[in-house]
Structure formats: structure tokens, C-alpha cells
Design a protein around this nucleic acid. Structure first.
Lengths: 337, 337
DNA sequence: AGTATTCATGGAACCGTTTCCATTTAGTAG
DNA sequence: CTACTAAATGGAAACGGTTCCATGAATACT
């Protein structure tokens, strides 16, 4: 209960505090016999160094922050799992900041680096503004974006344009002409992927000589339920689509539920393709665009760790790791009836 | 880049450092005019207090640790989401410790409390030994177990015996007599729920006058694939079961895959019931025993926070919150053929 | 044996806060 | 206007480590 400090250990071992500190930090310049004495004293007193003090005096926190939007989102979780797998075998602790409300966003993005709470920062699926990026750069703390882009920051990204293109093109090749795109709000300034996949979608349409029908693009906040409602809305249309490209697997699932509930068979009456390839996608035999969620976390963490080891090199050219997407054909897509 | 400290602010504002500190901590005894001066200086210098120093000086870390086994496990993730939702709106940071290997277990359970890295600790699905419990109690740091039990520690638990009983009884009521139990390793000393659900299973059998057939109990490490293999094994038996109670939904999914691959229909030829009611369970129409995963995290966090507010009260009688289970009947169970 | 050189060690300053305690200032009453 | 009390403020000592620098001991070399 009463805290035992480095001084107690020093007294007990009959040495100076500096020596104890050296033992704690595996300094080579401690005679073996004294090292043993110190270790004994540590053992006897059941001593363990106070982290806060260490951090203050070293100027390092030995922890890495992860800023995450909507921790309930399965694709975010998967990325985080990748991060955890890497950080776990490093000496760093992982501090998790979840942003549920947009207001909290500023708080974290501004305060976390300023308060020197972490030695490095990973930001998942949140695109920083130029001003925010400026702040990060100025703070000097290494940052890596995962699934987000800023020209001046290190990042691990996915070619969402290509992914959206692949998905749409595949539907077109199956023979579909009336293809809807169901997504998060396109205008969200911090969600670049929505727009990129949309762009890929439009590109594929155009290449095939199909015109983009604005009424086939529905947007709402993310989630299965909103997607379900959008699905219902699509199916109510006088000239409903025969295929839906959903921004995420979660939304694709909502669409399928809407279709099923309306007595339509998937893929018989409606083809549905998702994006992400989350765990459930496999169970549900969902055709989707696979992206390496777990790997994105792994790569991002590795990149961050190397950046942290070379504090000198503030690279003028930020590093970009681009992960591929891959079409995974399962059982929710088929030629139109 | 150069760190601006409280002294810089004090000098700039023409006040003492103590006053700046008071402003930072919203002390009421600061005249409004000086407060304004200080805030101005803070603004001008773009100052933000150093966390490490605060922590050392206050003796509090303002962070809560969460120790998690196998962060990839969906039920664990769901609990963690509940935790995050509560901690997020508290002033505490969340530090995540993932335990993938048993060896790491000791490291965390011993070091985290000793090093004063956190002000409070949540432990998910890990049953501490008596010795470990002793250490926690001695360390004086508030701890709450979630989905784990120790008589001397605060905890949020699920009535796993009742859950296993409900599941099995339901299968029996459907007319099944040959009911298998597929689970994690029963002997894992830190996984109490496996044994509890097993107990409920046996109790239901016994009550119905059915004898427990040891060959109907298969165990392996957790995961969909191992469960898939166990499913195959069950179906190869000369007298295979007509129903399977799986320790988890993840495992139930593996069983279903094995059955489907063998050309059996679920629930026509084989009934399968899971446990947990994870997200995918709904998509897959899996009959299962619902437990409030998210809520367990919420309740555990709340309990911890109240414990932390009453540091005096080291309750002689630890608090136990018991969450109910509920049978959710979907489409993977039916009377035997 | 004496001096130079290396190695081990201890003391003290420092990291940037909070907070106790003493002091100054303001406010109130006589 | 003075005396007294209450409020505001500043200085300095913690908090518990790390690390620079000086010192003493041990080893090596001539």
C-alpha cells in the first residue's frame, strides 16, 4: 500500500539511487555484484517503478494513441485488431480514443498531440483538415493515417476508386444496367472513401456507356438499419434497380434484409455487392470487395514504429502504403432476371 | 516544438505559477480578472499542460486499464464496446492490454497494478487465481471483473449455468435426445464459463432422464475452424447427435458449416444452438442464448467508476452484478427428423 | 612503485505539475 | 480612516524517476 520508491531500494541495497536506476534500465556499467544486490532489494521490497515519474523525467510516454471513429463499426474493429497485434509485441501501451460525436473529434485531434499524452499516433478513417495536419506536423509527434488521406502525412490507404470501379464493373458484366449506390453521407468532409468509391462507381458506369441516375444514389448515416430503410426506398421506386452496390458490407446486409422482407430473392431478383469483406460477409456469402482491414492496421503500426525510431527524419515526402482491393464473388450477385 | 511550461504562462500573464495552476484546475478562488489574464496568456502561447507531470504530481493517472484476452473474439469486442461507451464520457483515458499468449497474462496481471499505470482496472473474461486476487486487493487499485468470477472481487457475471440449461432444455423439449456439447478446453483454469455452461447442459440432461454421453462432448481451442473440425468429427460418428449446443456463436457457425458441407440441412437434419448472440447470429438466424455483452461492459465500467469515487470503501463484501440470459429462437433449431 | 586510464558509483539538478503555507490585497465594519 | 477578517496570490517543496558530472576505486602500463 505505502509506495516504495527508488530511494528505499537504494537504502536497502546500500547503494545510490543512480545505481538503482541504472539497474532498472539495464545499464551495462554496473558491477555484477552490485546489480545482484539491487535486484535483491527490489525483490524484497516488491518494488516496481512509477510510470508517471518515468515518463516525466524521460520525456517519453511509452504509449501510442489510436483515434477511432465509431468503435462499433466492424471494419474499424478489424483494423484495430491489426494494430493491437503489432503494438502488443512492442514496448508501447495502447491508448484508445473513440470519437462518437463530431464535437469530440476536435478535442482529440487537437489535445492529444499537444498534451504529450502519447509518443505516436494512429488515426483510423478520419481525414484531417489542412489546419489539423499542420498542427500534427508542428507538434513533432509521429502520426500515421489509416484509411485516410492527407498529402502531407504518412498513411496507409486503400484504392477505393479502383474498388468501387471493380464492384460496379462486375455488376455491369453480369448484365445489370440499373445499378444503385447506397452509402454514408457523401458530403462528410472527413470520410473520403465514400466519395472515392462513388467515383469508381460512376467511372465504371461511364465506361460502359451507362448514364448515372441520381435517384439511384441514396445516402444516410452508416449502419444496417439506415441501409435497410434505403433498401426499402429503392424497391418502392417505379423503376427499381436490379443491383445495388453498397458502400459497406454492413449496409449491404441491410439491403439484403429489405429485399428479403419484400419477398425478393437475392441474387435472383436483386444483386447486392458490398465492400470491406468483414467477418460476417463470409458467413452470409456476400459478394464484396475485399480490402485488407487487419493488414492496414498492421502496416500502419509498423510504419509508425519505424517513424518513431527515426525521430530525426521528418520526411519531406510522407510515406504512402497503398493496399489492394480484390473482388470476392460469393452468392449475392447474379445476372438480372 | 519547444515546450511551453506553466512558468512561461505565469511570466507572460504576470502572475505566479500557483495561480496558473488554479486556473487550469478551475479553482474558485481566482479573481475573474486574473483568470482572464491567465487564459489569455495560455491562448497566446498555445499552452497545454503536460500530462505526465500532472499525473506524477497528482498521484493519479486519469486512465483506466482494460485487460482483454484474445481481442479478436467477437464477444470480447462487444463487451469492450460497452466499456468504451461509458469511459468515453468520463474524464478517463482507456488503456488497452491484449493478452494473446498465456505467458503475457502474468506480466499484465502483476505489473499493471504495481506500476500504478492506471487508476482502475477492468478485466474481461479472465479468472484470476487466488494469489492474483490477493495482489489486486493489496495494491489498493479498484478492479472489476467482467465475465469472470472471484469471491473477493467486484464482478459482472452472467448466469452461465442457467444459460446452458436453457439451451439444452429447449433442445430436449423439441424432442432431441442425442445432444452434443462443443466447447473450448474445459480444463482451462481461467475460463469458468466453459465449465458453467457444461454444468447447465448436464443438469438439463439429467432432469430429463437422459444420460450424459462423454463422446458427445468435444473440446478444442476457440474459433470457427476448430469448431468446424469438431463438427466433422461428430458427424462421422456411428451414432451422431441430432443437435449440438455450442459454447459460443462462433463455434456454432463452424458446426453449421461442417453440417452444410456434409450435405445436411440445418435445422432439418441437425439442430444447432449457440451462445452469446453476437452480431452475426442475427444475420445467420442462429438460435442462441442471448447474453448482454454490451451491457456487461457498461455495467462493469459504471461499477468501476463508482468504486473509484469512493476510495475509502474497500467493500468487505464485493459487489456482484448478475446479468440474465435469454433464449432467442431463430431458425437453426427444429424437432429431430 | 607511481602515474595514467578506465570503470563504477553517488550526489544533485531536472522533468512540469500540484498544493501547502505564508503573505499580500481587498472588503467590511466600526 | 483604522482595524479586522476573508479572499487572492506567490514561493517552495513535494511527486519519483533519469542523467550529467564529479569523485573514488580498480586496473594497466612504464
Amino acid at each position: 500500500m505505502t509506495t516504495v520508491t527508488i530511494r528505499d531500494v537504494a537504502r536497502r541495497a546500500g547503494v545510490g539511487i543512480a545505481t538503482v536506476s541504472r539497474v532498472l534500465n539495464n545499464s551495462p556499467s554496473v558491477r555484477e555484484s552490485t546489480r545482484r544486490k539491487v535486484l535483491e532489494a527490489i525483490e524484497e521490497l516488491n518494488y516496481s517503478p512509477n510510470q508517471a515519474a518515468r515518463r516525466l523525467s524521460r520525456g517519453k510516454t511509452m504509449s501510442i494513441g489510436v483515434i477511432v471513429p465509431y468503435f462499433t463499426n466492424p471494419s474499424v474493429v478489424k483494423r484495430l485488431q491489426g494494430i493491437v497485434s503489432v503494438i502488443n509485441s512492442s514496448p508501447y501501451d495502447l491508448v484508445l480514443f473513440d470519437i462518437e460525436k463530431v464535437t469530440r473529434r476536435d478535442v482529440f485531434l487537437r489535445n492529444v498531440p499537444r498534451q504529450k499524452m502519447v509518443d505516436g499516433l494512429l488515426i483510423i478513417s478520419l481525414t484531417p483538415t489542412d489546419e489539423e495536419a499542420e498542427q500534427f506536423l508542428a507538434s513533432g509527434i509521429p502520426v500515421v493515417l489509416i484509411d485516410a488521406f492527407h498529402p502531407r502525412m504518412n498513411r496507409v490507404i486503400v484504392d477505393n476508386v479502383a474498388g468501387g470501379y471493380k464492384a460496379t464493373k462486375y455488376l455491369i458484366e453480369l448484365g445489370h444496367q440499373k445499378i444503385a449506390y447506397v452509402s454514408d453521407f457523401l458530403a462528410d468532409p472527413f470520410n473520403t472513401p465514400v466519395r472515392d468509391r462513388f467515383e469508381g462507381y460512376k467511372k465504371a458506369l461511364q465506361e460502359a456507356g451507362l448514364i448515372f441516375r441520381p435517384e439511384y444514389h441514396l445516402q444516410d448515416k452508416h449502419g444496417r438499419l439506415p441501409a435497410y430503410k434505403m433498401g426499402k426506398q429503392l424497391l418502392r421506386m417505379p423503376d427499381p434497380p436490379t443491383a445495388v452496390f453498397a458502400y459497406s458490407d454492413t449496409q449491404a446486409i441491410g439491403i439484403i434484409e429489405a429485399a428479403t422482407e419484400n419477398g425478393l430473392s437475392v441474387p435472383g431478383d436483386l444483386s447486392v455487392i458490398g465492400f470491406d469483406d468483414i467477418e460476417s460477409a463470409e458467413y452470409l456469402h456476400l459478394t464484396t470487395v475485399h480490402q485488407s482491414l487487419f493488414e492496414s492496421g498492421v502496416e500502419g503500426s509498423k510504419l509508425l514504429l519505424t517513424q518513431m525510431q527515426n525521430p530525426d527524419a521528418i520526411p519531406t515526402n510522407p510515406i504512402e502504403i497503398k493496399l489492394p482491393t480484390e473482388l470476392v464473388i460469393r452468392k449475392t450477385t447474379a445476372p438480372p432476371a
